[in-house]
Amino acid sequence: MPLHPDIAAFLASLPTPEPGPIDPDVLRAAEHAHLAPVSSRPHVASVEDRTARTPDGDVPVRVYRDGAAGRGILVYLHGGAFFLGSIETHDHVARALAVATGLDVVAVGYRLAPENAFPAGLDDACGVVRWADELDGGPVLAVAGDSSGGTFAAAVAARLHDEGFDRITHQVLLYPSLDLDFDQSRYPSLVENATGYGLEFAGLAPFNAFYLGSGADPADPLVSPTKRADLTGLPAALIVTAQFDPLRDEGEAYGQRLRDAGVDAEVVRMPRANHGFVQNFPHLDESREAIAQVARFVGEAG
């Protein structure tokens, strides 16, 4: 199938990027300048800004509830190449997840690169999962993330498993970045979808440079979860990929490796979609279907 026409039209309307180095502050300001009004986002019964107290410090979180209490908790980690994104830029995604799943959703305002060296953001994410488990939310404790948030979700599931914390029942990875070794020959989708679909292969290295420059080593399994040798014992996984995403194949390969290790892992490829479609095009059927897939998945026994 071809790229969705709404996505294609949007990409065609984008101006040519300015040459020169990337300025995180400029891009962050641009993100927040284009936020949709709260009135246009999914309605949720309650939204509360809170502080999660963790061993590594206080972490801002936003808790969404749309169903009955006590069913479970989904900890949501936003994307943004480890230096962009926030609770606010992904507020509509967290709301949609709360409405669809009936779980309490805890969105995490983890520390960003380059101001905060690796593993600051990952430490925050792990700490919030442990904090959320103390909320007595119910039998489900899921961790989910999109793009680089998917990197964190996979790394959190693995790291907490290694620490003996096996309360996580589900991991949800939406078009995740799982291999920060940007060797184009390793995955066909890095070539097939290299240009013209929003996330450019040529942009992967400079965008992730803020994270890697903060001390994150692409060979470290907590940075590139696909580098982990032993995947046995990890939580059940749902990996949603996009047809026109250069990161598509690494996500699908990780799903196969999880299955080979005996983990209940499902991979769903969304046709006509590109990287970031759930955040950037929430009105599309493909985005609604991805959220529905998450709801179905976490509704199953972990």
Rank of each mutant, 00 (worst) to 15 (best):
E252P: 06
V63T: 13
T226Q: 09
D66C: 14
W131G: 01
V26A: 14
G299C: 07
Y76E: 02
L173V: 11
P21M: 03
L160G: 03
D249Q: 05
P282M: 07
P225C: 09
G138D: 00
S185M: 05
P42R: 13
N193K: 08
A219V: 03
G102H: 08
T226E: 10
G80P: 08
I73S: 06
V191W: 11
P5N: 15
V99K: 11
F82K: 01
G67D: 09
P2W: 04
V106L: 06
V38P: 02
E88P: 07
G164I: 08
A237S: 15
G145W: 00
L247Y: 03
L231W: 02
G145S: 02
F244I: 01
A36E: 03
L3W: 13
A154S: 01
R167K: 10
V128Y: 04
P246G: 05
L174Q: 13
V93Y: 11
G203S: 09
H32C: 12
L204Q: 01
V99G: 13
R53E: 13
H32V: 06
A52Q: 03
H90N: 09
A96W: 02
F152Y: 10
L11A: 11
V223M: 12
T89W: 05
T169A: 14
A52G: 15
A158M: 14
E266D: 11
A117K: 03
A33V: 07
F297I: 03
V26K: 11
R228L: 13
A120D: 10
H4A: 12
G79V: 08
G109V: 13
P119F: 11
L35P: 06
L84P: 01
G67C: 06
D285P: 12
A100N: 08
P5K: 05
P21N: 11
T101Q: 07
K227P: 08
T51I: 13
Q256W: 06
F207Q: 04
V47S: 08
V240C: 07
G215T: 12
Q171M: 05
D179Y: 03
F210N: 01
L180Q: 00
H170Q: 12
L204E: 01
R228N: 03
G150H: 09
V59G: 06
